[in-house]
Amino acid sequence: MQHQAYQPLLPVGNKYLQQKWDKASYDLHRRKVNSAKPAINTTPPRTFGHLALKLKKQKLEEEWAMKIQRENNMLREKISHIMKTTGAVDNRNVYSVKSLGTEKRQLEFLRITKDNEMILRRLTQCKSEYDRRSWHEDWLKTLKVMDSIARYPRGGANQQKVNHVEN
């Protein structure tokens, strides 16, 4: 605002000189602000070449690729050998399978078999506690009683059918 008169903050003898001094002081202040360096370092960290290249990792990957290539070559040679020859595979096992607990299992099986035979023998030799003949006689008596107290004779429907078919 150039058209207004300069008003110093403190009372002065000469406003023009005070304006000149204040402007010089302000310009100095602006130069200091522009040339000031930050108190905190905000620049990115330095990058080191040996960290970016990772030579060890490259070497391990090359060794791994060489190992895979070597195994692939071996497989290719085996397959070509099989293709050139008869291709027979030797898969016969001549050893016999042996179990450590075979004898114990066989002895236990024999013991259980003998126990079962003894129980069967006792069951077959044992005489029954129940008499089938007396049960049958009781049942016949029960049927006679049922016939005597029934309103309609037992088996009457069947006798009617038989009589109806004969007529």
Rank of each mutant, 00 (worst) to 15 (best):
M1W: 10
M1G: 14
L10N: 08
L10S: 08
P11F: 00
V12K: 00
Y16N: 11
L17Y: 00
Q18C: 01
Q19D: 02
K20Q: 10
W21I: 03
K23N: 10
K23L: 11
A24D: 01
A24R: 00
S25N: 12
S25I: 02
D27K: 01
D27Q: 03
L28E: 01
L28Q: 13
R30H: 05
K32H: 08
S35L: 09
S35D: 09
A36L: 09
I40Y: 00
T42C: 07
F48T: 02
F48W: 15
G49S: 10
L51N: 13
A52F: 05
L53G: 04
K54R: 14
K54P: 02
L55A: 10
K56C: 07
K56F: 06
K56D: 10
K57L: 09
K59I: 06
L60V: 05
E61Q: 12
E61V: 02
E61F: 06
E62Q: 12
E62L: 11
E62G: 01
E63W: 03
W64I: 09
K67M: 06
K67R: 13
I68K: 09
I68E: 07
Q69I: 02
R70W: 04
N73R: 12
L75P: 00
R76Q: 14
I79Y: 02
K84Y: 01
K84C: 02
K84T: 06
N91M: 14
N93Y: 01
N93M: 03
V94Y: 12
V94P: 08
Y95F: 15
V97Y: 04
S99R: 15
S99L: 15
L100Q: 09
L100W: 12
T102P: 01
E103S: 09
K104F: 14
K104M: 15
K104G: 03
R105P: 02
R105T: 15
E108P: 00
F109P: 06
L110N: 14
T113V: 09
E117Q: 06
I119R: 04
R121M: 03
L123I: 01
Q125T: 05
Q125R: 00
K127S: 05
K127I: 04
S128C: 02
E129G: 12
E129D: 12
Y130C: 08
Y130K: 14
S134I: 11
E137Y: 05
W139P: 07
K141I: 15
L143F: 06
L143Q: 07
L143N: 06
K144M: 13
K144V: 15
K144L: 14
V145W: 15
D147E: 14
D147M: 07
D147N: 12
S148K: 07
S148E: 08
S148D: 10
A150K: 02
A150E: 00
R151D: 05
R151M: 04
Y152R: 15
P153M: 11
P153A: 03
R154A: 13
G156M: 13
N158W: 06
N158V: 12
Q159V: 00
Q160R: 08
V162P: 02
N163C: 04
N163D: 12
H164W: 11
H164M: 11
E166Y: 04
N167D: 15
N167I: 07
